[in-house]
C-alpha cells in the first residue's frame, strides 16, 4: 500500500462539517488533545508503517 493522495472521501463537505462539529465548545487545548487522539486512532487503523511514514513526509 502506498499513501493515497487522490480524493477518497465520498462526501467531503459532510465529513468536514462533522470534523469541525466534534470540536464545538472545546477550548484550544481540548481541541489539540482531541486532534492528537484522532491522529493516533487513525494511525492505528492504517497500521501500515510505510504509509504512516509517507504521510508524515507529505505533511512536513
Amino acid at each position: 500500500m502506498s499513501l493515497k493522495q487522490d480524493p477518497n472521501i465520498p462526501d467531503p463537505d459532510g465529513f468536514y462539517q462533522e470534523l469541525l462539529a466534534a470540536h464545538d465548545g472545546l477550548s484550544k487545548a481540548e481541541s489539540d488533545a482531541l486532534n492528537a487522539r484522532l491522529i493516533l486512532t487513525l494511525a492505528n487503523h492504517i497500521g501500515d508503517c510505510e504509509v504512516l511514514r509517507d504521510a508524515l513526509k507529505a505533511v512536513k
Partner: peptide, 24 residues
Amino acid sequence: SEVSQIFRNAVLDMAARAPFARPL
C-alpha cells in the same frame, strides 16, 4: 473558531500539494 481556522488553512496548504484536499 481558532481550530476551524487551523483546519481550514491545513486544507488550503494540502490542496497545493495533493489532489485529495481540493474537494474540501
